[in-house]
Nucleic acid binder design. Structure first.
Lengths: 261, 261
DNA sequence: ATTTATTTTGTTAATTTGACAAAATAAATC
DNA sequence: GATTTATTTTGTCAAATTAACAAAATAAAT
């Protein structure tokens, strides 16, 4: 049966479900690239996903929503729970860099809280992970709370993260790709109005491959969930692209059945 | 932030991660139908999924494997973690029938264990759920352990289950359907050798729709992961169907990329 | 009017899907 | 040994989809 290598007694803060946390991989689409919301602890070199504990009176979805909204100010986000991580290495003593980061953070706490908090962090945590889709243009990121810096980072520039958070991000991207056909990325990741090529670039960013412009446009328009508006005047010396928006009624139905790509 | 309706202190059994459990939806293919492994508590009318607690030294995957192997004797099963359930109603006091069942079970315990065990069961549990695919023909179900009866039940005959276990089963079926193209159902659910029509019936059972026999056969054979063997002699007055088995090397590659259906 | 970059539509071959029908098969029975 | 029977296997063909390129249309600025 189960091995019991280290039998650590389970400490916890009253009112909080012990041993459980929630982590969120928040996707946003900025400057034609997919970005993820990451946190950096001040005075350290450690980055982390936005996350938090689960309160005893709270549902997980609610908690994930709160985590995201406290950073972004947006409170109706598209949530997708994709995996629960439970590796025995999920504690702050496993990697040297994490341990050092923790010491720096502990030093800022009142003396009497340091020991208990440290003990909390060397327990193995089970973390249920969500990916979250939101319209980055609407977001006003709160850059600094509790000495944590919040930033949009593009997928190609993700630094080393705390614990197994890199693995979580990677798994989130794979989940995003796999579920793409059933996700309302048009509603959630795009601004109110957008150009066709912008929409295509989003698909390309998620799928990680080039799509034919002509074929993409024809396919999307045939699905019939885009409403064409006036053109976007950039001041450039070329034809202005049309702007499009989503016909929500049509789109919701299509997404429920799955948009084949 | 999080509401704290009922602030119950978190009790737990030493060595076990508090508030967390694992539940398994075990799929098997029997008599041309999909079945699920269910448990019935003796002397009650309550059915449940096979499940258990998470030990502090154990990974979740390992735990799910143990749960299944203790019931079936099989210890290399195909696991797929699909969701973590955290509703505030996930405790044995929520539904009257569950509560009565619990009382019956408690009565069988030694006096001194009754109160503590009851207190454990009225806490909200977070349950990470797996679906498991295995070859039902290999399984020798252990029908009775700890006063629990273990049975294969076909999807159309699933009774009312304890807690939110019906919801868990339904979500497992939906997950099975959605991930079908990436699941090695041929290796895991079918016996060593099988007929084409049997294989087709499996697909039909999962997808819940009729498939054209000719087209199915052509498509599968074109994929090239089936090896044809001798015919199956049933004694019936008709052409004997060929038996097929899986070419694992080819199949694994195809499943990794996704077999389109 | 011309330049320019981008959108939009066309075209075509190749492939896949869906629906149905016909042929082949082989064991058992008469 | 011919016949019956149920099932597998192959055939056909129209319709739809995909993939890859090419050409045309567009409109703002020069």
């Amino acid at each position: 049966m189960a091995k019991q290598k280290e039998l650590i007694s389970n400490l916890h803060i009253p009112g909080i479900v012990p041993s459980i946390s929630i982590d969120c991989v928040v996707f946003g689409y900025l400057e034609k690239k997919l970005h993820v919301l990451l946190i950096k602890y001040k005075d350290t070199q450690s980055w982390t996903l936005p996350g938090g504990f689960l309160y005893e009176g709270a549902e997980m979805d609610e908690t994930a929503t709160n985590i995201v909204s406290s950073r972004t100010g947006i409170d109706n986000v598209y949530l997708n729970q994709f995996y629960t991580f439970s590796s025995l290495d999920r504690h702050w003593k496993h990697k040297k860099k994490d341990w050092e980061c923790l010491q720096t953070l502990l030093a800022k706490l009142p003396e009497r809280d340091q020991k208990p908090f440290e003990e909390l962090m060397i327990q193995r945590y089970i973390s249920t992970a969500y990916f979250v889709l939101l319209n980055a243009a609407e977001v006003r990121v709160k850059p600094d709370i509790h000495g944590q810096l919040c930033n949009w980072i593009s997928l190609s520039e993700i630094p080393e993260l705390v614990l197994d958070h890199n693995e979580i991000v990677n798994k989130a991207i794979r989940a995003l790709r796999k579920r793409l056909n059933f996700l309302p990325i048009g509603k959630t990741l795009m601004p109110e109005k957008f150009t066709m090529s912008d929409f295509q670039t989003l698909y390309e960013a998620i799928l990680g491959k080039y799509l034919d412009r002509g074929n993409f446009q024809r396919k999307i328009m045939k699905l019939g969930f885009l409403i064409r508006h006036e053109k976007l005047m950039t001041g450039a010396q070329n034809k202005a692209p049309y702007l499009y928006s989503i016909d929500h009624e049509v789109y919701d139905k299509l997404v429920a059945e799955g948009i084949g790509f």
